[in-house]
Design a protein around this nucleic acid. Structure first.
Ligand SMILES: [Mn+2]
Ligand SMILES: [Mn+2]
Ligand SMILES: [Zn+2]
Ligand SMILES: [Zn+2]
Lengths: 148, 148
DNA sequence: TGAAAGAGTTAGAATGACTCTAAACCTCAA
DNA sequence: TTGAGGTTTAGAGTCATTCTAACTCTTTCA
């Protein structure tokens, strides 16, 4: 949970921010690192709590601001399930989400191109989709075993 | 927007409610009728406003209660898009939702069985899904023409 | 050097969809 | 009649999120 952002991750951040005229700041680095180091779709509060370990003065408002900024420049995706609080996901590959009814945990489900296009194909003419959100809800067999 | 519930719709309501030990009431009939008569995925407030035309004394709390009851006995589905307020849908066939970026309107998109099963097939072993939610977000060509 | 500008951060207030509470209301069956 | 239990209701409460306005930091250039 410590260690700095890798050179590659930092330039990814740098790149995406400057593309929309914004700057890398210590707060943004910290929040981004939190998202990358444990990809369990944390809520704002979870991000806040984790980030404060590295940067105790960080405010909740800033965490909201950073996350909004990241979403705006395509660095992370928001994940919503029903009316629960919004979670954040730095996985930029096309994927669906599976929420485990029992634990509340959210898992990434890889979305193969052919499934994605079969989905697009159900849209009638005249419907141009920019984003698709797919979320499963159910149970997982408890053969987990790893921390995370 | 007036006219009573058809015999068939009323017994559908009756049936579903009694299956879970609950009763048909004038409020539930009114709210259910609102959902059936304009299937545009209204929010709670929209349902409330429409329902009060037929039943002026109806309270917002009761609308929340009725809708929760209907969801509980499988008469309607909740539809969420990002953090917007929850909308309600009486279409029980498997379908996805398309939200028009420009108008905010939500459209039903029919979901063929083969697409549904291709979706289920992306789940790794051990993941048992009870519900799938699919929502598109984008624009529609304005060749509408009908009221509703 | 030393304002001034502008982006970013912060604490706390405000918002709003939703949920809860407790009293009133109904219906039905002793 | 009475009362049990489901339903409805107004209003209070909750909580994630957004807004506001003051503060800080960095950059620009007189
Ligand atoms: Mn979702
Ligand atoms: Mn949705
Ligand atoms: Zn994800
Ligand atoms: Zn629908």
């Amino acid at each position: 949970m410590n260690q700095n952002l890798s050179e590659a991750d930092l330039s990814h951040l740098q790149e995406a921010l400057s593309r929309s005229g914004q700057k890398v700041t210590p707060q943004r680095e910290t929040v981004f690192k939190v998202l990358l180091s444990k990809r369990d779709h944390p809520s704002v509060d979870e991000v806040y709590n984790r980030a404060r370990e590295a940067m105790p003065g960080l405010s909740l408002a800033t965490v909201y601001n950073c996350l909004e900024t990241f979403v705006g420049c395509g660095l992370v995706r928001q994940v919503n399930h029903e009316r629960e609080s919004t979670r954040y996901c730095p996985n930029l590959a096309p994927h669906a989400h599976f929420r485990d009814k029992a634990t509340g945990r959210v898992h990434d489900i890889d979305l193969p191109p052919e499934v994605l296009s079969s989905l697009r194909s159900i849209l009638p003419p005249g419907f141009d989709s920019e984003t698709i959100e797919i979320s499963f809800h159910g149970r997982t067999q408890a053969k987990d075993g790893h921390a995370n």
